[in-house]
Design a protein around this nucleic acid. Structure first.
Lengths: 233, 233
DNA sequence: ACCTGAACACCGTTCAAGT
DNA sequence: ACCTGAACACCGTTCAAGT
């Protein structure tokens, strides 16, 4: 009876044994809902009903955990559509990657921080890059142009927007900020642009700026540029 | 005598009173030499010969410190060259920003993390953006095209390379990485590219890839694309 | 042999005690 | 009134003690 009672009590925390996949899934879920700041070894362990040290049996350290989380989300990107020309194949895959990033807003920051830390790309990321290179090569790009294309695309290959600022809506008004009219007077060009954009599409609430449109605009400008270089060498 | 001895002892730590500028300069210097991970309130205080809490008289918290550091390095970017057409004016300024980023490798990460935190851009950053918008407008860009141009340029306006990976040289060989020949077999397109690049310019040691050239290549492809949109609407 | 609690060396920031 | 040391609530990770 004592054993049964103990098992009933243990049923609150999952009985399925810990695995690397379960640790990574818990970490991704935690980051999805609370952002990357809410991600700590202690908190992942708590979510799994496990003592913090138990995690270190499945991931060597936090960096390996982050790499594993990257692999999980990269795996969500659609495989390359076959039969399409290089331009639409690249385009579709990048847009799929962007949808993944919108589901996992923490991912771009984690990927970037792992790059800055001079970490090696994971095998999953290399697989992704290899397949992207293959699309350019299959489209008839020379090795040199493919090399340049990979640099030109850069993080956009993974759906990064490369914008300076995120959507401005829902930002805390800072106390030391001058009032809007003074801002407008000091930065006339920003004010002019903000006015025009706000007036342009009144339908969209918030930023008054269609992120998806701007992303595709920039992506197409880049792909068109590459196509031109590919066409007349 | 005791007072003199005390002053002589105090001469080891700077006697000039603390100011926001001195705090920021110390923080920038610390980040320049040790990276952003070496940056902590406690360590800045130590470098200034001051108790940690003394910093909070000049910066409200660490976020305000980071914003101040951003302002310091943005201030190092050359002012816009007047008399030049829009394209060379933008080009020169972006290249100046890139030189700044190479001097302060931590800056891009700090700027990005402040963006992700949905912080408002500082007045110094807004001044920079306002002047960049002004260059496009002065070059005859319509409001709409200027708006798109600012999105297309994105973080490249501040000299960001937007590359997926930094220079691969000097990276720790990870233990779980397969041997090079297996990598080459699993990722044939990457291998082909790496071989070609390494063979291409044997003069450059390390990555075998000219970062400055690739940056300008991508920048010019973008500016050419904008010029084309500007020219034939 | 395995698991894990306590401990270590940090961190940003608060707060009360001391001058 | 001002300054600051100790303390708080964290963090990733080590390590020895207990089973």
């Amino acid at each position: 009876m004592i054993e049964i009672a103990t098992q009933a009590g243990a049923a609150a925390q999952p009985r399925t044994p810990l695995s690397k996949a379960r640790v990574l899934d818990a970490a991704v879920a935690l980051a999805d809902e609370g952002g990357v700041d809410a991600l700590s070894m202690r908190r992942i362990a708590q979510a799994l009903g496990v003592v913090p040290m138990a995690l270190y049996k499945h991931v060597a350290n936090k960096n390996e955990l982050l790499d594993g989380m990257i692999d999980v989300v990269i795996g969500e990107i659609d495989p390359p559509a076959d039969g399409a020309d290089w331009k639409t194949a690249i385009r579709r895959r990048v847009l799929s990657a962007r949808r993944m990033l919108l589901r996992h807003p923490w991912a771009s920051g984690v990927i970037e921080s792992r790059m800055k830390a001079r970490a090696n790309p994971t095998l999953v990321v290399m697989e992704y890059l290899d397949s992207m290179i293959g699309i350019f090569r299959g489209g008839g790009f020379s090795i040199d142009l493919t090399h340049h294309a990979m640099h030109v695309m850069g993080s956009r290959l993974l759906g990064f927007s490369q914008e300076l600022f995120e959507d401005g809506a829902g930002r805390d008004p800072e106390p030391d900020m001058p009032p809007p009219e003074e801002i407008a007077a000091r930065f006339p060009h920003i004010a002019e642009l903000a006015m025009a954009v706000a007036h342009d599409d009144e339908s969209v609430v918030g930023s008054g700026c269609d992120d998806q449109f701007e992303f595709e605009f920039a992506l197409d400008l880049t792909l068109d540029g590459l196509e031109r270089l590919h066409g007349d060498p």
